[in-house]
Design a protein around this nucleic acid. Structure first.
Length: 337
DNA sequence: AATGGGTACAACCGCTTTCCT
DNA sequence: AAGGAAAGCGGTTGTACCCAT
């Protein structure tokens, strides 16, 4: 049956708000206060959904909103907050007086994601073909959106803190061989994810696992890891993947191996591919990561220098906090430049 | 001037969470 | 405790606008 609509939409106006509507809504709320959004349109004499009224008030009409361009200081704050909070726009907005979550989200997607995109510049050969959706977007002039999708997780996941916390993990900044001969589908399905991966990964053993996970090195859970961590081990650590075998491995139709989270597999999303070529494309349905097997992202010289520094886990500083802060500030400065 | 690509942002959609009875 | 309504939230879409050709 589907979900009941939030309000009766027949006869209701949609789209851009007029100045008259804004005035009616503003006066009504000034007189009666916020809340009771469902009944507000009727009481105020607006042909709008209550939800639309709420959004218009919160995002545009409130008197405490700060209009105008995002300042450098605000941008810096957004970058830093996003690095630690991810896409929690409302939380980020809570740190920026006068700014709304919608405004910050739009600013991030339209301004900052493009800067982040320059962190990784896959060559044309490694860029995946446009999907049906991205082709439509291209025609509609929405290339920035598909680019945004491919890169949206980067800054939120590759943080100096993460690098510091995981610097002992050998699959960071290390060569990770891809399986030369993927196990046939039937065989792979019989094996546990762990044993298959150990075999496929050429016996790489990660020795930083908690005792209870000995024997399941590649799936070593780490509560500090962001579920959407962008790095090769993410293939193994993403989502709710754990040692109980919730990861399912299947063979790709050609030379690559598909690793898919069962939950996502059922929904038809979340396919990860790891090709055995020099560069690997890691695709999760929304994001396509280009990964060199030597553990670096492709980019120009300046980007490479910055990235290699950010990725350098051998912090000689000795003070982890200062090292984190220094790199985070440097990354922000670089993005702002 | 017309056209098309690209950008910015307001608004919408639908799911989740919180609140209230 | 349960269930429905309201509010919150993040992702997505529509479209006005700018700029280059």
């Amino acid at each position: 049956m589907g979900r009941a609509p939030c309000c009766e939409k027949v006869g209701l106006k949609r789209g851009r708000w007029t100045a008259e509507e804004d005035e009616i809504l503003t006066k009504y709320i000034q007189a009666n206060g916020e809340g009771s959004w469902r009944s507000l349109p009727k009481n105020a004499g607006l042909l709008r959904c209550g939800k639309s009224c709420r959004l218009r008030w919160i995002n545009y009409l409130r008197s405490d909103l700060k209009r105008g361009n995002i300042s450098n200081e605000e941008e810096e704050a957004i970058i830093k907050l996003h690095a630690s909070l991810g896409n929690k726009w409302s939380l980020i907005a809570g740190h920026l007086p006068g700014r709304t979550d919608n405004e910050i989200k739009n600013y991030w997607n339209s301004h900052l994601s493009r800067k982040i995109q320059s962190f990784r510049s896959p060559t044309d050969e490694t860029k995946p073909p446009l999907t049906m959706e991205s082709s439509v977007n291209k025609r509609r002039g929405r290339t920035s959106r598909s680019a945004m999708k491919r890169n949206k997780m980067y800054i939120s996941t590759i943080t100096p803190k993460f690098l510091e916390q995981n610097k002992e993990r050998p699959f960071i900044n290390s060569v990770i061989p891809m399986p030369r001969t993927p196990a046939p589908l039937e065989e792979a399905s019989k094996l546990s994810a762990v044993s298959w991966q150990e075999e496929a990964m050429g016996g790489i053993i990660l020795d930083d696992c908690p005792m209870e996970n000995q024997g399941a090195p590649m799936l070593c859970p780490n509560e500090e890891l962001d579920a959407q961590m962008l790095c090769l081990n993410d293939i193994m650590a993403d989502g709710e993947v754990n040692t109980s075998g919730s990861l399912n491995l299947v063979q790709d139709r050609e030379n690559s191996v598909m690793v898919v989270n069962m939950e996502e597999r059922e929904s038809g999303n979340g396919w990860y591919s790891a090709s055995s070529s020099t560069n690997s494309l890691i695709e999760d349905g929304n994001n396509i990561w280009n990964w060199n097997l030597d553990g670096s992202f492709e980019g120009n010289d300046e980007e490479d220098k910055m990235l290699s520094w950010l990725w350098d886990t051998s912090d000689t500083n000795g003070d982890e906090g200062e090292g984190d802060s220094e790199k985070q500030n440097a990354m922000v400065a670089w993005l702002l430049s």
